[in-house]
Design a protein around this nucleic acid. Structure first.
Length: 462
RNA sequence: GGCUCGGUGGCAGAGUGGUUAUGUAGGGGCCUGCAAAGCCUUGCACAGCGGUUCGAUUCCGCUCCGAGCCUCCA
């Protein structure tokens, strides 16, 4: 039984599908005007894991994650760089997908773009006007928040208190301070589309309401995104999608479960432009394998804040190295892929609101058992480790390759083999000073050697 | 000011009303010419103060500290 924490209600609850033959999930994707940072990656990895887990339980999962390719930050950036906004967004959409793939994130089944759904957004806005949830004022269309009684149900906010504590300047054309824009005018040099309310562009919440309905139908099972999207983005989506169909008393007529991942902080500090500590996947991938980055993201529970530190990355790297070493030692054991089975205790941990730290602890315990296991037990353990790895998206590489055995980026293999031969010659002659100096020389070139009972083997330091 | 969520061993990070988390880093040992790798073994912990309890790190209250949202944000 899968349990997930539902922000709509703030408690962990059993996942009961709307239609168990097709689980439908929508994750708010990136606004593509820059490289993806590690926070974007955490969202993608958390949802990827959820989808992978759902796929092991249910026959079909439809995973939708959008690309926001029109918004004011995009417009600003394209103006500043003097390139058409479409060129900008297509470029970073491509980079985003490449970066996520390097983290082992499987592509969503559908990745809709906001600009391909302008008509749907216009239709949705028309419905909201017709249902008296929206009004037209000074070329804007605004959602009237007091018309939606359940407003605040997701973020547990009381409107009056919000207004009192508000530090936001309120646009003069709003009937109510909480009203938000569905459609706004664009001047000639700003991207826009023709609409019944003139040339303009959508407000930023509207796209997800339109695209989720179009791609998944209403209601769907899970809606996800970063914690910060809870308010106002997801709150407004609920208002729009429920208001369009006059289901204002039933937020679950839009999406049943709300799944939100926590933030990434960097070396104990908030990740922000002003501190200048934004970690881009594009840069990290030059220094660490995607698998290491993925494991680092999975090493804390998805709802907890994740402290991204050099130490935490190295820890993940060391853990993977150790596990790959175990697998390398089991290299000569052939197993049938179809016999893979994720052990019950690890399934249970993952089904308990994606408790990845617990699952990883169990994985380590499983690996610890190898040294004291019989040959037949080792077959089972190897299969289980690979099955777990497949589920959570790690350990699928060739162990020798991953560990760097037998290939070098610096010295060529013949030179290395030659030096090892000389060293072993020296060892036979008990000339350990020479032997050790050869080893040191190799080490300085990034080559580590291991003397085993089957001879000397070498690997590049990872 | 309002709403959420946290404070666990050097570090990372689960969990539990009484029993080992796990990893990583350290200590000791085996192996090795010495290493590396592996194996065995071992410290170190539950922010503070009250309360409930036979017993609390785990439940309740308060205090202190921290994070996020309330404005664009994953």
């Amino acid at each position: 039984m899968l349990k997930i924490y539902n922000t709509l209600g703030n408690y962990k609850e059993e996942f009961v599908p709307i239609d168990s033959s097709n689980i439908r999930i929508y994750a708010c994707g990136p606004t593509v005007y820059n490289y993806a940072h590690i926070g974007n990656a955490r969202m993608a990895v958390a949802n990827d894991l959820l989808v992978r887990l759902l796929r092991t339980i249910y026959p079909k999962v439809t995973y939708v994650s959008n690309i926001t390719d029109i918004d004011d930050k995009i417009i600003e950036t394209s103006a500043k760089k003097n390139i058409p906004f479409k060129d900008l967004t297509r470029k970073f959409e491509k980079i985003y997908n490449e970066d996520m793939l390097s983290l082992g994130v499987l592509p969503p089944d559908i990745q809709p773009r906001a600009t391909d759904h302008i008509n749907e957004m216009i239709e949705l806005t028309k419905k909201l006007i017709k249902n008296n949830h929206a009004y037209i004022k000074e070329d804007h269309v605004l959602f009237h928040v007091p018309s939606f009684k359940k407003y605040g149900c997701l973020s547990k906010r009381n409107r009056e208190e919000q207004i009192l504590g508000s530090r936001v300047e309120i646009a003069p054309f709003k009937k109510d301070p909480a009203d938000f824009v569905l459609w706004k005018p664009s001047s000639n040099n700003v991207p826009g589309w023709q609409s019944p309310w003139g040339f303009g562009r959508p407000g930023w919440h509207l796209e997800c309401s339109a695209m989720s309905e179009k791609t998944l139908g209403l209601p769907f099972d899970i809606h996800s995104g970063g914690m910060d999207l809870t308010f106002p983005h997801h709150e407004n989506e609920i208002a729009q999608s429920c208001g369009a169909y006059n289901k204002t008393n039933d937020p679950k007529s839009f999406a049943k479960y709300w799944f939100h991942n926590g933030f990434v902080i960097v070396e104990g500090e908030k990740m922000s432009k002003s501190i200048g500590n934004i970690k881009l996947v594009h840069d990290l991938i030059n220094n660490f394998s995607g698998e290491v980055l993925r494991l680092t993201l999975l090493s804390s529970h998805y709802r907890q804040p994740l402290n991204w530190t050099v130490d935490s990355i190295n820890q993940s790297k060391n853990m993977l190295t150790r596990l790959y070493r175990e697998l390398k030692d089991l290299d000569d054991i052939d197993i049938n892929n179809s016999d893979y089975k994720v052990p019950d205790n690890i399934m249970a941990a993952l089904c308990d609101d994606l408790n990845t730290p617990k699952a990883l602890a169990e994985l380590n315990l499983l690996a610890n058992k190898i040294s004291s296991s019989s040959a037949s037990e080792k077959i089972i353990i190897k299969g289980e480790i690979l099955a777990i790895g497949k589920l959570i998206g790690i350990l699928q590489d060739n162990p020798k390759k991953w560990l760097g055995y037998g290939h070098s980026e610096g010295l060529d293999n013949d030179t290395i083999e030659g030096l090892i031969k000389n060293r072993n010659e020296a060892r036979r002659n008990k000339n350990f000073t020479l032997a050790d100096s050869i080893r040191d020389e190799l080490k300085s070139k990034g080559i580590e050697i291991e003397d085993t009972k089957n001879g000397t083997i070498w690997r590049s330091e990872i």
